[in-house]
Write a protein that binds this DNA or RNA. Structure first.
Lengths: 205, 205
DNA sequence: TTTATTATACCGACCAGTTGGTATGTTAAC
DNA sequence: GTTAACATACCAACTGGTCGGTATAATAAA
């Protein structure tokens, strides 16, 4: 599925990413990374002035991929329906399906990994994570406000919390799936969020 | 609020706990712990044969406190109503209120912290975390089955996922609250879970 | 009651191995 | 022949952990 990296920098990045998700940033040594990547120490410090710079590049890449993923699925959902509620439900369903068809166990979220060592990182790195989350919040909140206007919710609801709930579902499900060694938990929890939205906004038949 | 520890072992445990929540286990050095605790290196290794033994005692203590907290609030809820749905709703509300009245920022969850460095720990430690989560799942699921029998849910629902959702809400909200530096997110997300249960089981007026 | 014995709770210098990082190459492309 | 892309040997600081020793108190033998 994921193709092997050919160039040295990619090899380092790939090795570091997976090791950090399993050992945390502090628990991941430069020596272990270069061994796993099959490159020399000189190569490592040729591409990354310090270990922290590696951490910075990694989280930047991750945040970029995350934003693309968010945008991609939102656009896909918007292309499949004109109704804001349906768009939102499809949006959630797309992630649910991705998670359901997962082969290997979910590798984990780099945001959560970094946040669990937050005092090791500077504001620049923490800022990237915060911005990513605020992007999710804003993106979903905007859609939610369209939905609320068109479909008066069954109960008064705070759009911000309801938007946050999607990220909370992801992050929380990652933790449970790791501990209970059951990747399907993630899809199931997204299904619960999907149901929550339906219960709030859909008319009874 | 929290009283200062008087004896050496408590001082070590307290210092280590808070440092691990901020730096992760690997990022927390013995030297840093003893400095923070104000004890000598000899004292540390007098009480804990290895650093990993410290980690074990910490997670054991944490799991014990967690179980007591779960039991305490469940019993309290069961004392306040005879109806299973009300009991469950009160149970959630109790946690919500605790989180709302939080003064300092929430310190974080040791389970999640350890899980983000899962490969650093042995099966004995990981097993404690898994068991704690399975206890939550079982405890809430049992209650949910009573609820489902008495109040046919508006939609067909998987009790296991619905039970897991409470832990997911906690763990996910911890991550968001850390990143966005807003402890109130935790209470707000618990309120969403509370709402989800109401929407599923309560009759419309 | 005094004294010897033992256990507990610590102290801090020290150790071998590891850490992130550097210095000094070598090789190959442009 | 300059520059980018590595490789290798090396370093000082730090790592978890050890070790010999001390202070205090409980216990037991005399």
């Amino acid at each position: 599925m994921s193709n092997q990296p050919v160039n040295t920098k990619e090899k380092i990045l790939d090795a570091a990413r997976s090791m950090i998700l399993n050992h945390g940033f502090a628990g991941t040594t430069v020596d272990a990374v270069i061994k796993q990547a099959g490159v020399s120490k000189g190569a490592f410090f040729h591409y990354f002035p310090t270990k922290n710079d590696l951490g910075y590049v990694l989280i930047q890449q991750y945040a970029e991929g995350d934003a693309k993923h968010l945008d991609g699925n939102m656009e896909k959902a918007e292309g499949l329906s004109d109704d804001p509620l349906q768009q939102l439900l499809i949006f959630v369903k797309l992630f649910e399906q991705e998670m359901k068809s997962l082969q290997e166990p979910f590798p984990g979220c780099l945001f959560a990994s970094y946040l669990n060592n937050s005092e090791l990182f500077d504001e620049k790195i923490l800022g990237i994570i915060r911005e990513s989350m605020l992007t999710w919040r804003t993106r979903i909140m905007d859609k939610l406000e369209e939905v609320i206007e068109k479909y008066p919710p069954r109960r008064k609801v705070d759009p911000e919390s309801l938007a946050d709930m999607m990220m909370v579902t992801f992050e929380g499900a990652f933790v449970l799936s790791e501990s209970l060694e059951d990747s399907q938990i993630i899809a199931k929890q997204l299904a619960q969020y999907h149901l929550h939205l339906k219960l709030l906004f859909e008319k009874d038949e």
